[in-house]
Amino acid sequence: MMTSAVNHYFRSSIGRKHLVAITGLLLCGFLLGHLTGNLLLIAGPDAFNLYAHKLMSLGPVLYLIEAALTAVFVIHLGLAIKLNLENKKAKGKYQMKKCTGRGTTFMSATMPYTGIVLLIFIILHLMNLKFGTNYPTTVDGVEMRDLYRTTMEYFQNPVNVLWYVFSMICAGLHTAHGFASAFQSLGANHPKYYPKIKLISYLYAIVIGGGFSFLSVWAYMKGV
């Protein structure tokens, strides 16, 4: 077993937790970038469409980034499900009360559920927006997709807004535990800085959950 230490690493409890942690942090980074880009909605249709067009015109580079992002997501999801099923088995027949408030919190106890909500959300999100209605528009003489209109129209339906806000609350709950937990999994826990990581984790969760939710409500209030 010694000679295959690296091999075993990727099958071990700690090694796989490291992978969940790293992919989780990468997804956290993506979310922050996504939110920053979305804030351009407020700047108006042209700014938002130009930004989207710039991303789309990256061509093969964009596909590469998208493929990497998908891989990161699939690894995170696949391992998390696998680890969770193992954990259920390790607890045996008598499942205990999950959310005690002493160690486990509502956020940590609901990680699998908020994760599943986010999976469904991402599928619907891609279908409705990225692969949603394709309106053409022209900005500064360049023809491009009017993603602004697709987005604003989507948020005119209050059901869509509610689902979006619910999903973003789940994203906040998921990252509030996940962000700090990733550092612990990777071995970065020290009394000097771990409380700060925890604080950043909560702030991050509020920014992500609140930021995206705000934008959806803003779009609904603004109208087409």
């Binding site: 077993m1 075993h8 071990s12 409890s13 700690i14 796989r16 937790k17 680890l83 193992e86 954990n87 088995k89 390790a90 607890k91 005690t100 002493r102 160690g103 486990t104 919190t105 940590s108 106890a109 990680m111 535990h177 700090a180 937990s181 612990q184 999994s185």
Partner: peptide, 18 residues
């Protein structure tokens, strides 16, 4: 860690209940 994993213990998800 190898022995721990093979004995049917679960994986840490940082609940900190322990």
């Amino acid at each position: 860690v190898y022995t721990h994993d093979n004995l049917g213990f679960g994986n840490c998800t940082t609940h900190a209940e322990c």
